[in-house]
Design a protein around this nucleic acid. Structure first.
Length: 267
DNA sequence: TGCCAGGAAGGAA
DNA sequence: TTCCTTCATGGC
C-alpha cells in the first residue's frame, strides 16, 4: 500500500511538503493537492492522481521480489515498504535534477519554488473529498524558459546551473530532445540523448528516466548510492536488481539516508 | 573562513 | 574505461 510520507519525502520530488502532521501539500501537472494517508481511496478514484502516484502498479509484489535478492536489500526494502515511484512530468523532473547537482535538498526545493513563482498555500483539511485546485504556480514550460537569459534566472539563485537549465529548455522546446519519445526508446539511447544537454551527466539522465519517464530499470547513482553499493553490495551490478532496479535504488537511498540521520522519520 | 551538497566535464592513466 | 582534478554556488 502506498505510503505518502515515504513516497513524497524520499528525495524523488521537490514540490511536496508536510504542512501538518500526516498532511502533505504539493503540486503536479498544474494541480495543487492537499492530502493525507487516509485519503488513499480518493486518490485511487481520481485518474490523474491515480496515475501520478502509480497506484496501478503492484508494488507489494515488486518489493517482495527485490527483498529475496540480497539480505541487505531485504532490510532496505522493508524500510522502504510503501514507496512508489511517482509518474512525474519529465520536463519538470529533468529541470529538478539539473538543479540538484552539487546542491542540497532544502535549497533545491527553494530554487524550484522560486522558478515556479512562489509557494502554494496549503488547503484546509476537511473530512471528505479530495482537497485540490488549479495550481497558482505551475512549473514553467520549456518554451517559457527557452526565451529567457541567464540574467532573467538570476533571482532563482541557482548559480552555474542556470545555463544548464536554459540549454535544456532550448533543446526540449525545439524538439532536439523529444522527452516523450524517450519513454519507449532503448534505455541507453534515451540516456545518450539526455546527456546531449549541457550539464546533464549520467546521474541526472538516470533521475530523469526513472522519476520523469518511469523507466524503472534506470538506476541513478549519486554519492549516497555509490557509497552504499561499495559498502553493502560490492561487485553487484545494478542490472542484477532486475527490471525494478530503480525501485531498489530508492529503497537503498532512503535506507542509507535514514542510517545517516539525513531524512524524515519513516513511521 | 571553510565545509558541504542526490554532479559535470575534461584530462590522465 | 576508470580515476582524478577542477569548476562553481549559496547556506550555514
Amino acid at each position: 500500500m502506498l505510503n505518502l510520507r515515504k513516497t513524497l519525502l524520499c528525495g524523488q520530488c521537490f514540490r511536496w511538503q508536510e504542512t501538518a502532521p500526516g498532511v502533505f501539500s504539493g503540486t503536479a501537472g498544474g494541480r495543487f493537492l492537499t492530502v493525507s494517508q487516509k485519503d488513499l481511496p480518493l486518490l485511487k478514484a481520481d485518474p490523474f492522481w491515480c496515475s501520478y502516484f502509480d497506484l496501478g502498479t503492484d508494488y507489494d509484489t515488486l518489493q517482495r521480489q527485490l527483498a529475496v535478492l540480497y539480505p541487505t536489500l531485504r532490510e532496505a526494502a522493508q524500510l522502504g515498504m510503501g514507496i512508489h515511484i511517482l509518474r512525474q512530468d519529465p520536463w519538470e523532473a529533468l529541470c529538478s535534477f539539473i538543479l540538484s547537482q552539487n546542491n542540497n535538498i532544502p535549497r533545491i526545493q527553494g530554487i524550484i519554488n522560486r522558478l515556479c513563482g512562489g509557494q502554494e498555500e496549503s488547503l484546509p483539511p476537511i473530512m471528505s473529498g479530495l482537497r485540490q485546485q488549479k495550481s497558482l504556480h505551475p512549473f514553467p514550460s520549456a518554451e517559457t524558459l527557452a526565451g529567457q537569459t541567464e540574467q532573467d534566472l538570476a533571482p532563482l539563485r541557482c548559480g552555474f546551473r542556470a545555463r544548464y537549465l536554459l540549454d535544456a529548455a532550448e533543446k526540449v522546446a525545439s524538439g532536439t530532445v523529444n522527452l516523450e519519445a524517450l519513454r519507449t526508446a532503448p534505455l541507453e539511447e534515451a540516456r545518450r540523448q539526455l546527456m546531449t544537454i549541457i550539464g546533464v551527466g549520467p546521474k541526472v539522465a538516470d533521475c530523469t528516466l526513472l522519476y520523469g519517464l518511469h523507466r524503472m530499470e534506470a538506476f541513478p547513482k549519486d554519492v549516497w548510492i555509490k557509497r552504499a553499493m561499495a559498502q553493502w553490495f560490492p561487485g553487484v551490478a545494478p542490472s542484477s536488481f532486475g527490471p525494478a532496479a530503480g525501485l531498489a535504488q530508492q529503497y537503498i537511498f532512503c535506507w542509507v539516508r535514514q542510517q545517516a540521520g539525513r531524512t524524515v522519520s519513516h513511521k
